[in-house]
Amino acid sequence: MSARLLRFFGGGRTVPPPASAPVARERLQILLAHERSSRGQPDLLVLLRDEILAVVSRHVTLDPDKVIVKMDRGETVSTLEVDIELPNGFERMIAAAG
């Protein structure tokens, strides 16, 4: 039986699924661009994350459960979201310490 005939009998799909390879290509390009640039040197996003947390913790004692860090690495723009919950009255604590 020829391949075409086999396909006629076997190919039950009416709508072919959208090609997934272009999605794979785009995802890899974005990911690898970040990984290549950070190879051998600290990742900028990671560096910023660590330094921001270090600066804040110099002034307030950070409760690790109240610190939410999110990153999203995009093709042209990446975002770093640092959400720190500070206890009420921390300004007075700083004033007293200073």
């Binding site: 990911l31 690790p64 860090v69 999110k70 990153m71 999203d72 690495r73 995009g74």
Partner: peptide, 26 residues
């Protein structure tokens, strides 16, 4: 992370937690 589609959202990892840099929840 790549197979799960979360590769762009990795902030901290297993080693960070083992070394105490991050809490598990983070």
């Amino acid at each position: 992370d790549l197979v799960m589609g979360a590769e762009r959202r990795v902030v901290f990892d297993l080693i960070n937690v083992v070394q105490g840099v991050a809490k598990l929840s983070q």
